[in-house]
Design a protein around this nucleic acid. Structure first.
Lengths: 137, 137
DNA sequence: ATAGTTGCAAAAGTTTTGCATTGTA
DNA sequence: TACAATGCAAAACTTTTGCAACTAT
């Protein structure tokens, strides 16, 4: 189990003030276990823990965490945005059946033949999603 | 320029009745030039051509075209769904600046190290998006 | 003290749906 | 004729925003 720094430290390093709501949400997210959550998932966690955090604050905080580099926004399905607590370079296996997502180490797959970009352009990210479903046989 | 079969033929092959609205929308989309469009883009095309097709019908038709394999849904940005008239296996370059999308031939990039799947699972699709932005130097 | 945060409700944007009407086979 | 397709408006959802009250530094 990876040892996480104190929540206060995580927020401080990201330049975010450790307010009550942010600390509460960060505790839910940064517990050392990688997670993939939607805003609604977080609302559900908040409800279960009987916390008092509004939906707007959940959305705002997730966006702030993203901007600060604590979360990564992943685009899997246009129905809702998923946030990933694993911010390192990696890929995703997406199970269409139940919607769960599994991380694949970034170096486990190699991509050959990536195109050259123009001088003034840069590759911001390489997003690879493997969609998996039940075999149809 | 690739020669497209008649719209009626395309729809018939897909098992869709060639109704006036569907034919009109199919003409906009399947003109031999690959396109990436959102529902809103299609509404805009409809307006420009002074066609009388409602928003609901645009959405319904795009979904029907997708289900029939005439369009491919691509997930680039969770803000809106993009439909691709190129239904063959390929990848995407996404320019964050202006949101335009460029196709990359499926065989131009090779992926090594794709994980093995369980017996009852199958790989439905391999979606690769290269996000490009202005170089920050 | 001051600048950043929060909650609430409302707004905005995308997509779906119910239902009466119309068109296709 | 029977069934599918259409338009309209309204609903459903996700996400953002304006503003007054509050809180960390």
């Amino acid at each position: 189990m990876s040892q996480m720094p104190a929540i206060q430290t995580i927020l401080a390093k990201a330049g975010l003030r450790p307010t009550a709501k942010r600390v509460a949400l960060a505790k839910l997210l940064f517990d050392g276990v990688d997670k993939h959550v939607t805003a609604d998932d977080v609302m559900e966690m908040v409800r279960r823990k009987r916390l008092r955090v509004s939906q707007a604050t959940v959305y705002n905080s997730l966006n702030q965490f993203c901007a600060a580099g604590l979360l990564k926004r992943i685009v899997i399905d246009s129905s809702s945005t998923v946030f990933d607590t694993n911010t390192s370079h990696h890929h995703h296996l997406f199970y269409e059946d139940d919607g769960h997502i599994v991380d694949l180490a970034g170096d486990s797959i190699s991509l050959l033949g990536l195109p050259d970009l123009a001088e003034h352009e840069s590759l911001l990210s390489v997003d690879l999603i493997l969609r998996v479903g039940r075999a149809h046989d």
